[in-house]
Amino acid sequence: MAVAALSAANAAAAHAVVPFDDPLAIEIDAVGKTYASSDGAVTALGSVSLDVRRGEFISLLGPSGCGKTTLLRMVAGLEDTTTGHIHLHGRGLDGLGFVFQRDVLLNWRTILQNVLLPIEFRGGRPKQYRDRALALLATFGLAGFENKRPWELSGGMRQRAAICRALIDDPELLLMDEPFGALDALTRDELNVELQTLWHRSRKTTLFVTHSIPEAVFLSDRVVVISDKPGRIVEVLDIDFPRPRGLDIREEPAFGHYSRHLRDVLERHGAFRKR
């Protein structure tokens, strides 16, 4: 069964990687971020370099305030880099979908209209994307909710709709900033599985910011650990589980091994010093 899953995963990967020979999606080259503050300059991010391959799922793991969100926002063009530069391959900034920690659904729009918002922003015709939006919503179990307003949905459903919104224009790159941080543990598990399934089918290059070790291990091909003040990459760990993955992999010894290793790395770099 594991073999079957593996070969299915390889087939999907082979299918998705075809369009260009370009193996890279994002090049992050010696990127740093310094903020001016009343106590002088504060370095949020030291010098971070990372190559993200096409179709790769990477988690940025680190303690709160370590600059991982800043890094993600710089990749999305929402913040400038102080030093270094970031190169996005393919469609560049036009080819990315961003999922925020809060869903940021607009109350004056129905769920369907919310999902279609990026199309309107990019000057496209929402009608042409209606079917795709409905299909996306159905994938995330939101069929029948398209005409509801955001406030009529639970937190988990709202975040699912926000993910649909990020995916509506078929981005090359999915950037997620602690998207499940505000959800309860069970909903979070559900969404982890759904995201994993979706990713397995579409193989979108994904950068996923989290401070949850199990979430990072469960979802990622690689986990990038970022240390605190100033943020810098202290470890890049390959996660070698076949896909699609079920929540049961969390009981496997390898899962525990990965988790323990990541916790050790975080601890070594002072993530838990406050305890």
Binding site: A76, L78, G97, F98, L117, E120, G123
Partner: peptide
């Protein structure tokens, strides 16, 4: 307009006019 909404608008890379018509004005209604 909340910082979240501004980020959302910027991440969708729309023009200033889209930002006004799709986010600012309805939010101000």
């Amino acid at each position: 307009l909340t910082p979240d909404m501004i980020d959302l608008g910027r991440s969708m890379r729309g023009s200033g006019l889209k930002m006004l018509l799709k986010l600012r004005l309805p939010n101000a209604l």
